[in-house]
Design a binder for these strands. Sequence first.
DNA 1: GCGATTTTGTGAACGTATTCACAAGTGGTT
DNA 2: AACCACTTGTGAATACGTTCACAAAATCGC
Lengths: 279, 279
Amino acid sequence: MTEQQDATPADTKPGGLDGSRVGRARAAAGALSRAMRSTLPGRSEPRHPPTAAPADQQRSVPEATVARLALYLRVLSGLAEQGVVTVSSEELASAAGVNSANLRKDLSHLGSYGTRGVGYEVAVLVERIEGTLGLTRHRAVALIGIGNLGHALAGYDGFATRGFHIAALLDADPVRVGERIAGLTVRHVDEMAEAIREHDVAIGVIATPAHAAQDVCDRLVSCGVTSILNFAPMVLAVPDAVEVRRVDLAIELQILSFHEQRKLESVVALGRDGLEAAG
Amino acid sequence: MTEQQDATPADTKPGGLDGSRVGRARAAAGALSRAMRSTLPGRSEPRHPPTAAPADQQRSVPEATVARLALYLRVLSGLAEQGVVTVSSEELASAAGVNSANLRKDLSHLGSYGTRGVGYEVAVLVERIEGTLGLTRHRAVALIGIGNLGHALAGYDGFATRGFHIAALLDADPVRVGERIAGLTVRHVDEMAEAIREHDVAIGVIATPAHAAQDVCDRLVSCGVTSILNFAPMVLAVPDAVEVRRVDLAIELQILSFHEQRKLESVVALGRDGLEAAG
DNA sequence: GCGATTTTGTGAACGTATTCACAAGTGGTT
DNA sequence: AACCACTTGTGAATACGTTCACAAAATCGC
């Protein structure tokens, strides 16, 4: 997965200061303002003494596991709807497309509640995973950039179904301001601060064109938003404390293209080898 | 990624044999059409003899590297537009949000063409990366499911800009068939086979509701498509030889939610520790 | 209650990915 | 030509992630 994985790149600073964000030629690395960082206690979470509290296992859930937990949750919801009460690691794993040992290890990170010889209770797992992912709290989302993609996202009900609700739609284009979508009115991006405060927004979703994304991102950060989902095809610079996840459609296609290419090459290589062997 | 990242899940096997896929009540993954698989030569690419051709370094580019190459390409295109001719690993890395050693190692996989003391020529890198990712070939894409998201994808110009072009739009809803979007007419999904043959489609993009996705996927596979980008919120079952990448918006939000949660907890923990220390 | 069977939870082995750190080139300057 | 500042390319070290394999529960049938 990866990829997607680190998300908190280099550089920082919202405001002007180092306006040379990516400057001319080389200024990319430019003056890295390391400001903030003040708090974070070291990030690598030393090992906790064996005296740690027994109940809260959810320290140190590996990143890769987190992504899969969300996936398990999806599969489990489906099972629950079908009235399935218990599920074995083997069943759940194959429905999620992962190795069952991997699944068990993942679940063990949240202080697993399975029963040997039986499996896991679907309801219990759902509850534990939701707790770990923080889905019991209701999280408000602001969506910025109401173009084609923004429209689609605003209308996407997959958000609402799991504790997220879109609380604000923002766009810079006066023509779009005032439009009503999915029960919300599009507001101007300059009202971002109010909108975020009003609805206690925790997550910003950027669906603007690339050229506007960094500015929108900086504004979100300065409003205190520390989690951003970025659909704009570019790398955002943010302070360490802000978590950015990028969804890049063109890159996904390029990765697929690579695999197509490789299949082709291996066919060619096989053919060549065959000829060589035969010649 | 993440993540996002493995994409070719567990199991397979065409025939019955291990019919016990996932059992009854728990039949989440249901009747998986496992057809095909016929060809694939073994997937794990044994080690090649040391006599391998010297020029084609592109065997064994690690998965994680591939994802980043696409990212570098994006950054490099931006630099090229700005007229930048050479770039150092440090500059490029920080613009892409990765470690510079990591970047150099990535580039070394494609038989790097940098100059010590100077850096890389932007144009050369672009060319090498495009070659490695197979972007020199023109790749036709079929998009299935023309709802909100499908519309947005059909209109997204980020596809066209890098060697991909949407060759067919398909939907199961007769109401949508006939609609014209971005110069294409929506055809009925039953015409998939013709459409794919006509345009030599290499990649399928699924933007249908979850309940239709597996069926569409099976059809794509039976038409010989071996690369699929799946936006439907579910795990697709496919033969080993087919590469699936999933883009799941709700899961992205849930991962962000987890990090929000963790920040919160660490604040709470710090507070508690502080009190304990003080008390 | 006991053995057969199932399935969890996890140590250990393995594999992949990232980062460090530095020798070896390169171009520019004197 | 000798030096300096810079930057690549890569071995070695480290970190992270997955899979294996099996002991330790748990249930069931008798």
